[in-house]
Design a protein around this nucleic acid. Structure first.
Lengths: 336, 336
DNA sequence: CGCGTTTACGTCGTTCGTAACGATA
DNA sequence: TATCGTTACGAACGACGTAAACGCG
């Protein structure tokens, strides 16, 4: 068995069982791939693919398992080359991140700008999706970092660092009744209006309904959308009161919208960053985390990355007070 | 980078940085090893070893990391060949187990006998040691299975299956005061005698002292030993009352010793079996677990081995009632 | 001078790409 | 007939082992 054989195997699979395509991807000849595959199958003494005539038709059950293991081998080999680049002080490589719309749109832009200024040779990849899609990407090692909020159940295989807390805000058109009300916002007053908020199943949204139910309220959710931009649009149209993450309220929204702090009405939510346990962290990755969470000292991030158990990580992070993130700093309501 | 280079690298390390020895171990020529190592270092662009003249003197820090990753690669390659053997239905291979004296001496013999009858071509290796030594062996992947009791803190990286429960018994010479006493044993009556028990730091022994302290008792521990055989000897000599695991009481001990059930006085202890999360489990390994824990259906063991999270494993095992293991079945006190 | 590594070199095996062939839809 | 995989073949490369040289203790 050689690394080349395993690489070829994975290339074939990732090319849809098309050996010719795999050959092109690898800048080599097609018969070479064929031969190596035969050799690998011969050595293992099993068919990794079912054949339909001469073409590969499907992966055998045994093949699936071998492919899974082969991917691990290649990942670790990647890790070794990654290590060597790191130890030579090269600041080249890639950083791929999977995250939600809220982070991608309201939090990451300035982080990424600062990052790519400091590391112009690092290729950045940003994937946006639902929690489930993010989990899929990080669990199959297609991305390096996952940044999400709330539920960690889908991400139990990761090392996870808390980044910051946030609360929800209520969003109304300027001049709306609620905007005039000087008293603190309550769930009861909110429940009197149709609500516009995120689609459920996203980060901790179950806590949204629970908060109302705990007070015996059953608010009407007029509309749900995947991201705050759309919610804002519908709030402007007067569809109802928007309930969004505090970070999603921008200063220029002040022109026609008013944010009302809803801290305390709903549970506080933590945004965290996770990465596979056995991944080699390049120094630019540590720096990215530091840019994203400046309140975490680089030393602690470095240690946390090495921590073997969640407990050891807890111990390291015990003292750190996470900031609560708001949106527009000029607006006292959102910056609470 | 090739697998050969990584294999050679590990062989060099495991031969004490002696390239000639590594060559012999690998049944190849010494210059070949040298050349491959040079090539690997060249490709990685770093020194993996410091040289003293021409000899290898030590591993560089960078080398340590590369070696660590290289071991992982080779492990996964092992896993692939393991898979292929398994899927071809071969019942050959090795099974190495690290465990404590109690298991090795009183529990495993009959399991191993049955196992090696059924799988004569599987090589068995049994390592005996303290919890710490067992943790070291399994965490460095030098053994396949760890079998131990009590604390799982040292073994957080493993998949763990509970095997059975056990309690402690008090052991006295035949004719001892306590043996005559018809009333149920209490901590108080125990504390009146010098005690002989396991050395602390072993499985859950901290709970031993705690049990007494909870009742404000401070027993005198006259003697501690690593295993029950030695404890029995000293109990026979009249050094004190022995406190040992129920399994360690054998029928032939009845000749001159008397076991008194101590269930309830100390916390019940669970013996479990653990193995590395990413290990390929050969079918004979599953069978070994089944022989060790016949009350766990093979189907459940198979599923448990595949479970990704501890929670999924809990769910599978939720219904299973573990037996409480005693020693000599003829003795009602020990077989409680 | 012995031990261990490196260098040098000839041999052998393997891989690679091109080209031709075969099978399938 | 177009697509895709296999077979065939010659050239080039690389690995291996033997033998000799080198450096260190």
């Amino acid at each position: 068995m050689t690394l080349k054989q395993l690489k070829y195997l994975i290339a074939i699979v990732d090319s849809g069982l098309n050996i010719t395509a795999a050959a092109e991807r690898l800048y080599t000849s097609q018969p070479g791939i064929s031969k190596q595959l035969k050799q690998l199958e011969g050595e293992l003494g099993m068919q990794l693919f079912t054949r339909k005539g001469k073409s590969l038709a499907a992966i055998t059950p045994a093949g699936e398992e071998v492919i899974d293991r082969a991917r691990r081998v290649l990942r670790e080999v990647e890790n070794i080359t990654s290590l060597s680049r790191e130890l030579k002080g090269e600041q080249t490589g890639t950083l791929s991140i999977a995250t939600t719309h809220t982070q991608a749109r309201y939090v990451l832009p300035e982080v990424i700008q600062a990052f790519s200024e400091r590391y112009p040779k690092v290729d950045l990849e940003l994937h946006q999706g639902t929690s489930e899609q993010i989990a899929e990407l990080i669990n199959t090692h297609q991305v390096d970092f996952a940044i999400a909020s709330g539920s960690r159940k889908l991400f139990s295989n990761l090392k996870v660092l808390p980044i910051y807390h946030w609360n929800r805000i209520a969003l109304v058109p300027k001049g709306h009744e609620l905007a005039q009300d000087k008293r603190a916002l309550t769930l009861q007053s909110l429940a009197a209006y149709p609500l516009v908020t995120y689609v459920f199943s996203l980060t901790g949204e179950s806590s949204f309904k629970q908060a109302f139910q705990a007070e015996g309220l059953d608010p009407r959710v007029a509309f749900t959308a995947r991201d705050a931009d759309i919610i804002k649009t519908y709030v402007r149209m007067g569809m109802g009161v928007g309930i969004i993450a505090s970070m999603a309220y921008e200063c220029r929204d002040q022109d026609d919208l008013k944010a009302i702090d809803a801290t305390g009405l709903f549970p506080r939510i933590t945004t965290w960053l996770g990465f596979p346990k056995d991944m080699v962290l390049r120094s630019y990755m540590l720096d990215f985390i530091h840019l994203l969470a400046p309140h975490l000292p680089l030393g602690i991030i470095r240690e946390a990355a090495k921590a073997e158990t969640p407990e050891a990580l807890e111990a390291l992070l015990g003292d750190v007070e996470l900031p609560v993130r708001g949106g527009c700093p000029e607006d006292s309501a959102a910056a609470a």
